[in-house]
Design a binder for these strands. Structure first.
Lengths: 118, 118
DNA sequence: CCTACCTCTCTACGGTGCGTAGTACTACTA
DNA sequence: TAGTAGTACTACGCACCGTAGAGAGGTAGG
């Protein structure tokens, strides 16, 4: 895949948080703190869709951008990618299981149990 | 943390694979395919120790480099970092659990069960 | 109809990280 | 004493990213 930059992630977060696809202008309005030029937002949106993180569709003259995958899917994929870096997946998974906090271990346990049931 | 580059990862892999700390020369000899200048290897080793991935100790004039953490710990940390990117950790964990293959789900299950027992 | 404005695409600049390596200096060894 | 090994410092090119301006082409209001 590829990691995202700071601004790229901010923008993805905004788009992940909405269900409806947004235009560049709308995204720009939702980034309050930073005073970015409109073209900056457009450039980043363009790069993100080039990289496959966003899909865009026409709406009059403007594009509407929408995440290509859910944030959870993205995060899960990043985790799997990290896992691929090791030679010993079992050891890494064991480590990981030990590292997650108690409540999260519970989540994992439940998800795995459901898997088993199917 | 930070991701590693291509050559950086190659070198970390070499060091992770040995138990004993190696000198730059020794590492260079273990990279067969690429014909790298000795200084290239030294530079990368230096950067890696600056970044905290390696510890080094003197051995005569030379440095001996050694991973600061195990590969599994590194991978587990990367996975946790990915997990931190999401707003909804539970959803991401559930996704992840569904994505790992059957045998790996088994590993995870076992590790989690052991956790529970303590 | 003209003007202001919106949006797009294209191009660009500066910073940073990384692969790659040269140079200059020091110290051991034959 | 000359070669070799090792170090520190410096540097170049490339790619990625934050940032944004320039120019072109529609659109809407006076």
């Amino acid at each position: 895949m590829k990691g995202l930059g700071e601004l790229e992630r901010t923008i993805m977060d905004i788009l992940w948080a909405r269900s409806a696809p947004l235009t560049a202008r709308e995204v720009g309005r939702l980034i309050e703190d930073r005073d970015l030029a409109p073209t900056t937002v457009m450039t980043v949106l363009d790069r993100l869709s080039r990289k496959g993180f966003l899909n865009r569709t026409r709406d009059g003259r403007a594009w509407r951008y929408q995440p290509a995958a859910s944030r959870d899917a993205y995060v899960a994929e990043l985790m799997l990618e990290a896992l691929d870096l090791t030679g010993d997946r079992d050891a890494a998974l064991t480590r990981f299981a030990q590292a997650v906090s108690g409540s999260e271990a519970e989540i994992l346990r439940r998800a795995l149990t459901e898997l088993e049931d199917h």
